[in-house]
Amino acid sequence: MRQRHLEEDFEHIKTYLSEMMEDVRKQILDSINALEHINYEKAVKIIKDDDLIDDFQRKIENETFAYIGRYNPLAEDLRYVIMVIKIATDLERIADLAVNISKVVKKHKGEQLPKPLVHIKKMSGYVIKMLDDVLNAYYETDLSVTKKICYDDEEIDKIYKFIKEEISVKIIECDDISEVKFFIDLLLVARFLERVGDHIVNIAEELYYMEMGENLHEVIEIEKKLSKE
């Protein structure tokens, strides 16, 4: 049995990370919701709440550095603490992207969306599903979903490509300059969501390494190669 204080410090880090994951999921969900309804108040709140996410990242970093300094973790514990720092960084970036989306909402306060958010909604649907999967992988240490997350990200990339082409056509066809500006911002939103997808893939890879000590990206590449043969 390990020392009690070592286990307690470890539990602190785990708790902070799960709380941060839940809060970041909420930030992304709310930012899409705010965009859909051009909800200025909601957007302002998301931007304000980003400080809480930054606090979480700092707390996790401080606790993890102290843990490394105090206990010199090895093997599974070493993988865990290093990956926690990386996951917290990715979560913080995802929250920043939720802020970026909210800034678009703030900018277009009182305006109407130039078109309903069909594909952006589809993208955000994937993003939320991937975040749920990543949370599930963390809580249940169910690594089977980590591979699925990587494949889902490929779908996000396809939708992003489609949105780029669709909005380019809209911009060319559009005479209204304010509508053009809105389309450009929607293209940015799609780009932000595509980046969120990339960060979730990073987290999936980090969770996989945490448990298995192997690079998920390499594992998938080998599987793809084998299935072609």
Partner: peptide, 18 residues
């Protein structure tokens, strides 16, 4: 390799101070 990914559970547990 031993520090980050030992193959045997007993090594892993020993290095973790279990």
């Amino acid at each position: 390799k031993m520090a980050t990914k030992p193959s045997d559970k007993r090594t892993n547990d020993y290095l973790r101070g279990i």
